[in-house]
Design a protein around this nucleic acid. Structure first.
Length: 705
DNA sequence: ACTAATGTCCTTTTT
DNA sequence: GGACATTAGT
């Protein structure tokens, strides 16, 4: 399970069949829809129907943006069930649990319409599914079933702890930060690359620390084992270890008749290996993906998985979905022109029966403030023209790109919800509250102990270490914390904590457990954090969420692996009939669609991010990212970029520089768009071609009133 | 032993 | 503006 074990594998050797050539294979015969129970198949176009009704064996669906991929997968699940496959023997792997929910409920809807009511298929992310399978079968792989899962923050904290313990923190040259350490580790594990390759290719500035990093990672692996915790990567690693065992692989494979994988272009090598191992005995795998939308290379994803699929699963049928039902032709023309710059590409241009519609708008804004005002003006104009806020989305490369926009939205009283960036469970107070439950669940979870104990007066790292030793001496019974002799200021709290943990370990229903935690934690929270009322409300929401669960274990697993997207307190004031504007990172916008999309900060340095322009491959990924952003729009697409931006770095107060339009908007792309400026005289000598001026909001009304 | 204050370097995307 | 190491103060 250690890094060296997957060293030196490199990309798989061999010749890969060209996808385009494979696609030209003779079409499979369509199943006739004579059966009245299958009338619903008429909802589908020929390519979709071919994918849906494909029989046994491997199937690769290459589905361009907006071509009805979700619907196809949902119908396929419904079809398989209608053909007699027991739902609980179908496994649907998606990128988020929400995507799985969406598809499974749509499949259920289809079946219900046909009068077929049966159980639900298995569905979820690779990670969530791993967690479930490891609870069921992990003991065979030497895993204790009471393991807890570390989220990214916990994993970083553990690395930070070890980084300190190993004395790597104070050296003359600065050692990589804990977040960087985790990124390196994760990259090595997910890409199944060895450490020196990862360092050289993706983190060259840390290459001098290779030996120390290796020591750190070794300690990290050991410690996780001792604490009975798994990080996100371990979930996949242990799953892979399970299927590497022939007997276990057979057992796991036999549990499912069909496997379906969504967003296959964003899976990594590890996930491909797992998929292969889960299909011993039969080859019933459907994968759906679009190489033009691969945007998770940084997480080790490779398009190679799609390309290699026919080789991994010989005899695979390939079906391409090319008709777009989402966007108008003018939007697709821009998207097609943009993605035409990609070096490697297998999907064709998209076309849509929706011929008519406004051309996408490219707007040069005077500065960030003008951009904010322009976007808000457009959003409101469209809102008044009848497009609800929730059918409009502002997309951006990095979470912090919306800082000033959020202020403007709050000032104007426009409710919004932000996706990507900090999540509900990542806020300090929710993490604190969950730490109590984690300790009750897995008393060896030192990270949870650190969180809890450091809340107490007079307790710091040194005291926590003593407390942990004390606990170990008492058989890791968490209630033993009551008679740990800590600093006098914490005496009383320690006793109360011991009582609380004893209660949690009893047979209290989960919502009551959360309520006890809340009562213990409230005074600490109020003393320690600002915005206490908002945080207390979050704790109440946590109690509500808990009421949907019967077991603490599944509650914790779900919250760690698929947390609610956005914190309620990050949203604006909840009025306007529960309508809100969507702000989302492009990554989080994957799979979504909106009537109106605004892509902001389309300037080099922001998009592509200047941190992602180091190599050809990275730049290609940024191009695909822009492609994903553009293809989210159904009817209205607006791209903005600020010409002038203030330096955020420390230093001169009002220093500013001039931005350049995102490099992917070449003349060929701009030809498909309409251009304008916002915010008065922008004074750009270099970007002057074809720029016309207009007042954004008024113009919007005139165009689409 | 812990907390607050100060100085220095880096600043993405997510399960 | 945040993360993190170091230093000074309680």
């Amino acid at each position: 399970m250690w890094l060296e074990s997957h060293a030196g594998l490199g990309p798989l050797p061999g010749l890969f069949p060209d996808l385009a050539a494979l696609r030209a294979a003779p079409p499979a015969k369509l199943w006739p829809v004579a059966d009245p129970d299958l009338r619903w198949l008429d909802d589908l176009n020929p390519a979709q129907r071919e994918a849906v009704t494909y029989g046994e064996g491997p199937l690769l669906v290459v589905a361009g943006a907006g071509t009805g991929k979700t619907r196809t997968l949902a119908y396929r699940v419904a079809y398989l069930v209608a053909q007699g496959a027991p739902p609980e023997r179908i496994l649907l792997l998606t990128f988020t649990r929400r995507a799985a929910e969406e598809m499974l409920s749509r499949a259920e809807g289809v079946l219900r319409r046909a009068g077929d009511v049966r159980g639900r298929a298995w569905g979820g992310t690779f990670h969530a599914t791993a967690s479930r399978l490891l609870r069921l079968h992990g003991q065979a792989a030497g895993l204790s079933p009471d393991f807890t899962v570390l989220d990214g923050g916990d994993a970083e904290d553990l690395l930070g702890l070890l980084r300190h313990e190993l004395g790597l923190a104070s050296r003359d040259r600065r050692f990589p930060r804990k977040a960087t350490c985790l990124a390196i580790y994760s990259r090595a594990v997910n890409g199944t690359e060895d450490l020196s390759t990862v360092l050289a290719r993706h983190f060259p500035w840390t290459a001098a620390w290779e030996d120390e990093l290796r020591t750190l990672f070794r300690a990290y692996v050991d410690r996780k084992k001792r604490l009975r915790v798994l990080d996100f990567d371990d979930l996949l690693l242990y799953w892979r270890e399970m299927v590497a065992d022939p007997a276990l692989a057979r057992e796991l494979s036999a549990q499912f008749d069909h496997l379906l994988v969504d967003e296959y272009q964003d899976t990594n090598r590890l996930q491909a290996e797992i998929l292969r191992g889960m299909r011993i005995g039969n080859d019933n795998v459907t994968v759906v993906g679009d190489d033009a939308q691969s945007i998770y290379r940084f997480r080790g994803a490779t398009v190679r998985n799609i390309l290699d699929f026919p080789r991994e699963f010989p005899g695979a049928r390939i079906v391409a979905l090319e008709e777009n039902y989402r966007s108008t032709m003018p939007i697709l023309r821009t998207a097609n022109a943009l993605i035409a710059q990609a070096r490697e590409r297998y999907t064709k241009n998209l076309w849509s029966p929706r011929e008519r519609g406004p051309r996408p708008l490219l707007v040069a804004c005077r500065d960030e403030r003008a951009q904010d005002e322009f976007v808000v003006g457009e959003v409101l104009a469209r809102y008044e023209a009848g497009v609800p806020l929730r059918n409009q989305a502002v997309l951006f490369r990095a979470a912090h790109h919306t800082a000033s926009l959020e202020v403007e939205l709050a000032r104007r009283g426009i409710p919004f919800r932000k996706y990507g960036g900090l999540k509900f469970v990542e806020t300090a107070h929710i993490k604190d509250a969950l730490a109590f439950l984690r300790v009750a669940e897995n008393p060896r979870d030192e990270l949870a102990w650190f969180r809890i104990l450091e809340l107490l007066d007079g307790v710091g790292p040194v005291t926590v270490s003593r407390a942990l030793a004390h606990l170990a001496q008492h058989g890791h019974r968490p209630e033993a914390i009551a008679f740990f002799s800590g600093p006098s200021a914490s005496r009383e709290d320690l006793e109360r904590l011991g009582k609380l943990l004893a209660e949690l370990r009893g047979d209290l229903p989960l919502p009551a457990q959360v309520e006890r935690v809340r009562r213990f934690y409230e005074p600490l929270l109020t003393a320690l954090y600002d915005h206490a009322p908002a945080r207390l409300r979050d704790l109440e929401s946590l109690e509500v969420i808990a009421s949907g669960y019967s077991s603490r274990r599944s509650f914790l697993a779900d919250l760690q692996l698929d947390p609610p997207e956005s914190a309620a307190d990050l949203a604006g004031p909840p009025h306007l009939d529960d309508d809100w504007l969507v702000l989302s990172t492009i990554h989080s916008a994957k799979g979504c669609e909106w009537d109106a999309v605004y892509l902001i900060h389309a300037a080099d340095g922001f998009l592509p991010s200047d941190l992602a322009t180091g190599s050809e491959e990275e730049i290609e990924e940024e191009l695909r990212l822009v492609y994903v952003a553009l293809t989210r729009a159904k009817t209205y697409l607006t791209v903005t970029w600020p010409l002038r931006y203030a330096y955020r770095r420390w230093g001169a107060a009002d220093a500013h520089g001039y931005a350049q339009l995102c490099r992917f908007f070449t003349p060929a792309v701009r030809e498909t768009m309409e251009e304008g400026t916002a915010g008065g005289d922008v004074g750009t000598p270099s970007e002057g071609h074809g720029v016309t001026r207009f007042d954004g909001a008024a113009r919007i009304r005139a165009r689409w009133g």
